[in-house]
Design a protein around this nucleic acid. Structure first.
Lengths: 250, 250
DNA sequence: TCAAAAGTGTTAACTGTACACCCATGA
DNA sequence: TCATGGGTGTACAGTTAACACTTTTGA
């Protein structure tokens, strides 16, 4: 965590962490940071969620944006605060974490972290930009092992929030390229929710949504019947959402 | 905020605030703290949400519990973290707030607050205990005026979360006495959701829930047909909830 | 010609919604 | 006897869920 700037510019007890999800070739991935350290004479490689201490002059959201920007070079990314983690022991549950804190000269105080989850789409070859920092890793959520500190808890809760929001808000489209097929969309729902869905019922449901717009474009160079591309129309969504709110009854 | 204990025991940049809701005689109420101050020669009365700085050795949840305990003398209250508020300007938007901060000797740093909402029931004459602290006020949510700092934002968001959770989780029963009538329950939904519901449909829905148990008891001394009392059975709820999760499809 | 994913309708069960009257009680 | 809130059923509309085959393409 931020050792480059002057320590006094930061609130020593407050950090943000970002759980950055992305969907690529049918898998849900997450951005992790490699932490290399010497520990009892050996070199350990270890992973943690991206995060930093919060600056005194910035908003929490700006802080999370800053972390993402420094990490991936991207802004205008879907970003949502979901939980604060504040156990006094959260940084010190393992010997390895204590060693690391000493190694980087961390004051070893309680650090409460405000956790965000973030959705990116791996569109238009942007993926290369995520390699900006040499220790950024892009890993399948299902293959994540033991992370630093309480970061497994943070990831688990982020996933739970992602699942819940997927059913309530149009966030699937943050994870997909601008033009997507219904197969991709269904696959995304299946992967995140962890269950398979009926293709015909799924497509009927989508067909009723006024904000999923079919395009004239069609897949090319696929070894099966080529699929039609669709787009998400945010204005149509906002309109529908507004109407739904106004007429809502339990 | 906490001036009595040693300042070094607290994290100066981190507080918790509690939005304590209660339901009484058909109205949704919230606990507020009166803030009296001299301001340009006059005495102002002002309201804020209960809150305190977080101790270095305590968990965020414990911190919120502590605030509630000190305030109302009650523990084992429904308590849920819902959002962190961290704008650097959040304590200093008004002259009055700045004056107050100087008055109480606050270091005037950025304070990020972790906001909780809490539900209490005004059962069995417990209400008297809420008067423990002389400046505790119990006020209808619909009549709340301008609060200190960004506390109106916090209250607004707490209400939004309360509404959303009311539709998803059995929290209504935290706000009602152990034995309640269906009329009270419907009234609570109507007040929190801000719309009227169809009595017959509402009762049909409740009748299907395996965790709302009719008792043999019946209202007395009411100037209308006396209502039957019901209870919420948490075990039955947990059982049903577990089954629902296991068989869930989108 | 094969493999792989796209695309397509019907039926039955369930859920949500609209709607109006009588009942029991205390004042 | 009146005012107050308690209590009840039916019909229609909309939504969900189960289910199997044909199409188009590249390899």
């Amino acid at each position: 965590m931020a050792q480059k700037q002057l320590l006094k510019d930061f609130i020593p007890n407050l950090s943000v962490n970002c759980v950055v999800f992305g969907f690529e070739s049918g898998k849900l991935n997450v951005v992790l940071i490699e932490r290399k350290m010497h520990y009892w004479g050996k070199i350990y490689h270890d992973l943690e969620l991206p995060g930093e201490l919060v600056r005194r002059d910035e908003d929490l959201n700006s802080s999370a944006c800053r972390v993402l920007k420094e990490l991936t070079g991207l802004d205008n990314i879907y970003l949502k605060q979901f939980e604060a983690f504040g156990s006094p022991q959260r940084l010190k549950r393992r010997k390895r974490d204590l060693t690391w804190l000493k190694f980087v000269g961390h004051p070893e105080q309680t650090v409460v972290t405000i956790a965000y989850y973030s959705l990116i789409n791996i569109d238009q070859g942007k993926i290369s930009k995520y390699k900006l920092h040499p220790n950024v890793r892009w890993m399948q959520v299902s293959e994540v092992q033991e992370l630093a500190y309480d970061h497994n808890d943070i990831l688990t809760n982020a996933l739970a929030v992602l699942r819940a929001e997927l059913l309530l808000k149009p966030i699937a489209y943050e994870l997909l390229p601008k033009k997507f097929t219904l197969g991709q969309l269904q696959n995304l729902y299946e992967v995140i929710l962890g269950k398979s869905l009926d293709k015909r019922n799924f497509r009927k449901k989508i067909a009723k949504l006024p904000y999923i717009i079919p395009t004239a474009e069609i897949q090319a160079n696929v070894a099966h019947k080529p699929a039609q591309f669709y787009t998400f129309n945010n204005k149509a969504y906002a309109r529908m959402h507004k109407e739904a709110l106004e007429s809502a009854v339990v």
